[in-house]
Simulated scan of single mutants.
Amino acid sequence: MNGPTGKRRCHDMAMIVSDVIMTLVREKARDGKVSLHDLERIATLIGSGSMVLDSAYVHQEEACRKFHQLPKGNVGARSNPFHRLMVRPFEHLLAGDDLVLRRDYLPHYFEFLEHALEKRFEAFERHCRTIIQALMVIHGNNLTWDQFYADGRTVKTLQGALKLLRAYLDGPEGQRVWHACMMRPMGDLPQPSVGQVNHIRQVLLETARGLEAAE
């Protein structure tokens, strides 16, 4: 509910009330002073309402209602849910203090996934979209990615995809394709180091093993 000045709309409401109070205080002031009795009368007047305040209250109520009716979800209709799901295991390594690999390199990872999963890649993508559609029946436009990730069907999908990925990476072809895809520069960015791509690979394998153990 923050406006362009950084204030909340409720602060605007408080300013309106303050302006009315100060106007009444100035009218009652004598030699720059206001008696306690006059302040109590002003407070009573404010509490009982006035045309100025009534209008302000109605305007604020409408503004707040519109704000709270806005969709709170962040799952876009044109998003790629399977892409996002397959990044989830190492998402924490793409930014912040734990940065291992910049997001700019993710297209190389998605290219690897298409090699590894082949036709199943599109099937996984369709399945993830089906899950989102089912969740939107419940949550509507308030559906968030966290709700998608936490859904049992999504967890099972990630489990199945990583199991296939792990089997592929265990073979010589998978290792060759992994390095061929991941060890490339991206635009003006240099080629990632072996340590960087191996770290991502290790996290994927550990996540796969963890999900398999939880079956």
Rank of each mutant, 00 (worst) to 15 (best):
E118P: 04
K119A: 10
L189K: 09
M136P: 03
H127Y: 06
H115E: 07
D170A: 13
Q159V: 06
E114V: 04
L158K: 02
E114M: 03
E122G: 13
T144M: 09
E111C: 07
K156S: 12
L158M: 06
F112M: 06
F124C: 06
R166I: 15
L162I: 11
T144F: 09
K119I: 06
L117N: 02
D188I: 10
G140R: 01
G140M: 04
D146M: 13
E122I: 07
P172N: 08
R120C: 07
N141G: 15
M186E: 11
F121M: 05
N141Y: 12
R184M: 14
V137R: 08
L165S: 02
V177E: 05
T154I: 03
G152Q: 15
E125V: 01
P172V: 10
N141V: 11
D170S: 15
W145E: 04
H127A: 14
H179D: 13
Y168A: 04
M186Q: 15
V155Y: 14
A116D: 03
Q133I: 15
Y109W: 03
W178K: 04
G187K: 05
Y149S: 03
K119E: 07
F124Q: 00
E173S: 07
L162D: 04
L164V: 10
R153G: 13
L169M: 08
E173W: 09
G152T: 15
K156A: 12
G152P: 11
L143A: 09
L164R: 14
I131Y: 00
G140V: 03
A167E: 14
A134F: 07
R126G: 03
I132S: 02
V177N: 04
Q175C: 10
F112N: 03
A150N: 11
Y149C: 06
T157S: 10
A134P: 04
L135F: 02
I131H: 01
Q159L: 13
I132M: 01
R120K: 11
H179W: 09
E118L: 15
V137L: 11
L164K: 12
Q133W: 13
W178R: 01
F112Q: 04
L143F: 11
F148P: 06
L169R: 02
K119N: 06
M183L: 15
M186D: 11
M183E: 05
A180W: 07
L135I: 04
L189F: 08
M183N: 09
W145H: 07
T154K: 00
F110V: 08
M182N: 03
R176Y: 14
Q147D: 09
Y109D: 00
W178V: 01
K119V: 04
Q159T: 12
F110K: 02
G174M: 01
D170T: 14
R184K: 14
R153D: 12
K163W: 10
L162R: 04
E173P: 05
T154D: 02
T144Y: 11
A180M: 06
I132Y: 06
D151Q: 11
R184D: 09
G171W: 05
H179N: 13
P185W: 00
E118S: 13
L189S: 13
M136N: 10
L113E: 00
A180F: 06
C128W: 00
H179Y: 14
K119H: 07
